[in-house]
């Protein structure tokens, strides 16, 4: 069995609307790969194709040596899938949900029970195993959901927006669990998110915009594409200031939301100079190290919304 997922020239469209445009990438075991993109960037379509829900229209997907077009059933056995919409039955107990899932994947008897006990322990939900799922909090439900996807010891775990609807503390906890998993289960984790801080915690980030894969790398590598600092200036007349700054300092600001977004090597010195030349134009200034949002803006020219 190969130990990687290879996607080549994958395209998909709904009628005339193009959802994925010539996407290619490859990931190997032990990584958490996070697809980052705003709504409508093609994340969910990519997710549906990888999870075998919709067949790819053109291009090829190979998952651990199996071709998605011809060997979907073999691939399904290797995949654990967590959808964005809750996939648990609220009327069933935690234990019953896990058993049901196990049976769907051909697991039964003692080995299934042992696996369930192991997962309940790993996700700290042993004491809730006889509660109805609908009685659990959102964070706990997510944990059960991930445990459910892992019941048949898949090689690849796919998660679509796993932290949607969860508050920040629980999101952190979730990503700790995922990190633990990628080490302890020797599993490849692919997830989608529209949250920058969540993507920051992944081993690799693939940035999607309008169906195109615009960047792929570790968060640190991606951010190091931007040399120096990011300066954000709120101005009275952004257009005017933008022209003036371009002429005088040789930088190329991008404007959105009435903010000038400028990449420069020495942020604080640049700000001092700009402030002394245009004292009356500037409302507010922020200097910071580049974030994934800045990487997104740099690679796409669009704001991340």
């Amino acid at each position: 069995m190969e130990n990687k997922i290879t996607v080549e020239n994958l395209s998909h469209s709904y009628g005339s609307r193009c959802a994925l445009d010539n996407v290619s990438f490859s990931v190997t075991f032990g990584d958490i790969l996070c697809f980052l993109g705003p709504n409508g960037s093609g994340k969910t379509t990519l997710f549906k194709i990888l999870s075998t829900l919709i067949p790819p229209i053109s291009g090829s997907v190979n998952i651990l040596g199996y071709d998605l077009k011809t060997e979907a059933i073999a691939i399904r056995k290797l995949l654990g899938v967590v959808f964005q919409h809750p996939g648990l039955d609220g009327k069933l107990k935690v234990l019953e949900n896990l058993k049901h899932q196990g049976h769907l994947y051909g697991c039964k008897g003692k080995s299934l029970n042992n696996r369930i006990t192991e997962l309940l322990g790993k996700f700290d939900i042993e004491d809730r195993s006889n509660d109805l799922v609908e009685e659990l909090s959102g964070g706990l439900q997510r944990r059960v959901e991930i445990a459910k996807a892992l019941i048949h010891s898949p090689k690849v775990l796919l998660l679509d927006e796993p932290s949607s609807g969860l508050d920040i503390g629980i999101r952190r906890q979730l990503s700790d669990y995922l990190n633990l998993l990628s080490k302890s289960e020797n599993i490849l984790i692919l997830m989608t998110t529209h949250l920058l801080d969540e993507a920051d915690l992944a081993d690799k980030v693939a940035i999607l915009d309008n169906g195109k894969l615009v960047s792929l790398g570790s968060p640190t590598d991606l951010k190091s594409q931007i040399v120096g600092d990011i300066v954000l200036i709120e101005a009275n007349r952004p257009d005017v200031l933008c022209r003036e700054i371009t002429d005088r300092f040789g930088v190329s600001p991008i404007i959105f939301n009435n903010l000038l977004h400028i990449e420069c090597e020495q942020g604080h010195e640049f700000v001092r100079e700009v402030a002394s030349v245009f004292p009356d134009e500037i409302h507010n200034v922020r200097i910071g190290k580049p974030t994934l949002e800045d990487v997104f803006i740099k690679s796409t020219g669009n704001p991340f919304v």
């Binding site: 059933i73 073999a74 399904r76 995949l79 899938v81 919409h85 809750p86 996939g87």
Partner: peptide
Amino acid sequence: KEGFLQGILVAPV
């Protein structure tokens, strides 16, 4: 509507 069916659809059955 609740997403439970999707989980069954991606199972190898």
